[in-house]
Amino acid sequence: MRKDMPCCRDYTCRKEGGSVKKKRWSDYLWIVELLYLFLGLFNILFAWLGMLFFTIPLLIAVFGGGKAYCNRYCGRGQLLGLLGGRWKLSRNAPPPKFLRSPWFRYGFLTFFMVMFGLMLYSTYAVFTGAPLKETVTLLWVFKLPWQWPEVGMVAPWFAQFAFGFFGVMLTSTVLGIVTMLLFRPRSWCVYCPMGTMTQGICRLKHRKEAASYGRTSQKDSGASETSGQ
């Protein structure tokens, strides 16, 4: 086999100068994402596991791992990539420009954080004696009555957080699927609040590099002038 020929048709396999990168365990994390959504249907308390999807990317970004979570370990991104790419469910159209603008991305992050704060407040309300609401809110508006709660074994506030959090996860999954269908498979990654937050952390942590990359990103790519896609 010639050295510069790909060894197989697998897009994750990169052959260059004889070194072959085969699929890694992290390429199967989409299964974890699917499992999480299914487990939430069986018992809402499994929603708490979703905290891992929130804390791990932040910890990686804070402790110097950059956006390794988005790049390698994001199960949702992989799942959307599979649905839109391999299963060809995506239109594969470029997303509108506003989607990638900092205004929209940071605006969506702010909105998401406000909704998360409201969810925390309702958890606190149940903690202080308000009745437990056994509903999952989809897209911040639609209240889905949950038929499979089984939350008798835990404190009501613990269950309330699970209902609220599963709503957040389900909402973001639905948004991800809609933008996957309309635009490119991983269009969700463009405005994903966790992605925006981790990139913001990386920019803050490496201000000098971020400033220099901002200045040279167009210049040093070997480009003379843009000639279309």
Binding site: T12, G66, N71, R72, G77, R186, G195, Q199, S221, A223
Partner: peptide, 19 residues
Amino acid sequence: VASIGRECVACGCCAAVCP
């Protein structure tokens, strides 16, 4: 040659497919 714009979100999709 590829040229990466400033609004890159660093998601890593490009790095994953680059042969």
